[in-house]
């Protein structure tokens, strides 16, 4: 199964909710009235797009529809697709990869978002591209987080730098960086502990990891990926905002897109905070993490066939 199919399959449920509703709404609709737009609003909100961005989107669609003299539901749907795609592709979603030398990636997020699993998948991806990968287990807080990462490292055959549970995560990151440099690794991926963004001291700790890396090797970390669970609601906005402040988030990894979760919250995140989505997780397998492509995403979201 190619990625596009997989994404489509992963989004099948999302579509079942989202697209079916849109389709029911648009097919055979010849009159585009207030009621039509209200239903459109409803559908977007049910996909976690959020009130503010929904209202904005609907306004834009309304204006474009008027401008282009769109009369059918089908035309309006295309306009909506376009608007969402515009939001999602406003920022470059390719990975800032250093062709020569070490690329340092730091993975952050709230508890249970899927950071460690994402790292396992990322490591496997890089490894399969023939890159030398090193992992640093800087989640020294959660019970057995180090073991969990160790298992992923074994599975994908990459090396791991670790300390004891409870040790200073910035020190682990530091050691990881030094090891990656001396072993001439291509990629260093740093796992961090899950933290809720309103915990000031934990965010300070994260900021410290960031600063240590930045001080030891300028330009690092090259990527700070915020992992967001696709089932998350509007709190994702606050997550993105605060993590961006503490660790200069450069991209988002949207995980668990294989449920009925709509993941629609990435639309307001991209719109309001200008952070691009860089990867999506569409399954539980080790190779189910894929680069994000706005066009594919929107197409898959709106595609007709199952």
């Amino acid at each position: 199964m190619g990625f596009f199919e997989k994404l489509k399959a992963g989004l099948a449920k999302t579509r079942a909710g989202f697209v079916d509703k849109v389709n029911t709404l648009v097919t055979g609709r010849t009159k585009i009235d207030e009621e039509f737009y209200e239903e459109l609003e409803e559908i977007l909100i049910q996909s976690d797009v959020g009130v503010e961005t929904t209202l904005k989107l609907v306004e834009q669609v309304k204006a474009s529809a008027k401008e282009r003299k769109a009369t059918s539901g089908e035309e309006v749907k295309d306009i909506l697709k376009e608007e969402i795609e515009n939001i999602l592709s406003a920022k470059d979603s390719s990975l800032n990869f250093q062709e020569d030398g070490l690329t340092v990636i730091m993975v952050v997020g709230v508890n249970g978002a899927g950071k460690t699993t994402t790292i396992g998948k990322l490591a496997a991806n890089f490894k399969s591209e023939g890159k030398k990968v090193l992992l640093a287990a800087a989640d020294t807080f959660r019970a057995a987080a180090i073991e969990q990462l160790e298992i992923w490292a074994e599975r994908s055959g990459v090396e791991l730098v670790k300390h004891q549970e409870g040790s200073d995560p910035a020190a682990v990151a530091f050691d990881g960086l030094k090891a990656a440099q001396s072993r001439q690794a291509d990629v260093l991926i740093i796992d961090t502990a899950g933290r809720l963004q309103n915990k000031k001291n934990l965010m300070n700790e994260l900021n410290k990891i960031f600063r240590v890396l930045n001080r030891e090797a300028s330009g690092t970390p090259h990527e700070v990926l915020l992992v967001i669970d696709a089932t998350t609601g509007q709190n994702a906005l606050s997550q993105a905002l605060v993590f961006k402040e503490a660790a200069n988030v450069t991209g988002i990894v949207l995980t668990k897109l294989d449920g009925t979760a709509k993941g629609g919250v990435i639309i307001p995140v991209a719109d309001q905070l200008q952070i691009p989505v860089k990867f999506v997780g569409v399954g539980e397998g080790i190779d189910d993490l894929k680069p994000f492509d706005a066009k594919d995403f929107v197409s898959a979201l709106f595609s007709e066939e199952g």
Binding site: V110, D229, T232, G233, A236, K262, G264
Partner: peptide, 11 residues
């Protein structure tokens, strides 16, 4: 998870 969005219902 208290942060769950609209999907909480179907879950």
């Amino acid at each position: 998870d208290a942060m769950t969005g609209q999907d909480a219902v179907s879950v």
